[in-house]
Amino acid sequence: MSLYPNTYRLLSRHWLKRIAFFLLGIVLLYAPFALLTRLVLWVTGTPLLPDAHRICLRMPIQWLGQPWMYRTMLEQPMYLGAVLVLPAIALFVGPLFCGWLCPAGGITEYLSRLVPPRFQIDLAGRINPTPIRYGFTAGLIVAAFVGGNVCCSFCNFTHTQNLISGIFGHTLELSYWTSFTAVSFVLWFFVLGLFTKGGRGWCNFLCPAGALMGLFHSIGKAVGLGRSVQVNASLCRSCKKCVSNCPAWAISMKQDTAQVNSHMCNGCMDCVKVCPDKAISYTTNRLPSGEPAPAAPGVSSGE
C-alpha cells in the first residue's frame, strides 16, 4: 500500500472498518446472501428471490413522475424501506449508507486506491458535482416523459449485483451485455471509478440515491437536526489533508478554512481520521441561531 503511504498509516484501521461494513452491505443486500432482504421477504410473504433489485431506490425516484407505479411497493415492500428508511437515516445521521454500506460505491473507491494517482483524473475542486447530480436525478424523472429510460439502463447496482453473482457462479446476467449496460459499466467501474481519484465519480455525479440522501442530509443540517461532519474553524490550519482525502469531493477551502458540503458528504469520515489537528468531527447539528438542536431520536447530543 505504498501508493498512499502517509494516508495509509493514518487511515488503515478506519479503512478496514469501512471495508468490513461494505462486506456487510453485500451480505445484507446482495444475492446470493441478501440476508436482510430475505428476512423482509419472508416476513411479508413475498414470493420473490432476494437480490439487490428488491431494494432498488432508483425506481421509486423515477416513479415521482409515474405515481401509479408506487403500487408496486405492495408487491415488493422493500422498495418502501429504501425510499423511506435511507432518506430518514440521512436526515438524522447523514448518508451513512453511501459511505459505509453501499458496495457499489465501496468497490470502486477501494479498488481505485490500487491505481497510481498519475493514471487518475483528479476532479476534486475542479468541478462542482452537486448540481450535476441533482440535475441527473431530475433527468431520471423527466426522461420517462420524453421517451427515455435511465433507471435500469444506467444502473451501477445491477452491475455490482451481476459481479457478485458471477463470483459465486451465477454468470448468466453478467455474460449478457447491451450497448447501454456496456457504456454504464465502463463509466462506473473504470472512467469514474478506478481512474478517478477517490473512486467515487459515479456516486458524485450520477447517483440518484446519493442525491436524495444528500438532499435530506442537507435539510437536517440546515434545520439543526441530527448529526453531520463539521469543521471547527478555530482549529483548522488549512493543511488540506481533508480535501485531498475526501472521496466524495465534499470538502473545499474557503478563507483558509475547510468547509464540508453536506450535499456531497457521504459520511465516510475519512476526513475526521486524517485531520492532524482534530478540527473535523462528526457532531450534532446546530440551529442557525447557534443553539444546539434537540437530539435526533435515539442519538445522544454532542460528540
Partner: peptide, 28 residues
Amino acid sequence: KLWSLGLVGLLFAVGFGRWAQSLFVVSE
C-alpha cells in the same frame, strides 16, 4: 453556473435515457 451544471446533468440523463430506450424497445 450552478443551474448550467444542473442542466448538463439533466440533459445527459435525458439523452442517455432516450438512446437506451431506442435500443430497449426494438432489439437489445
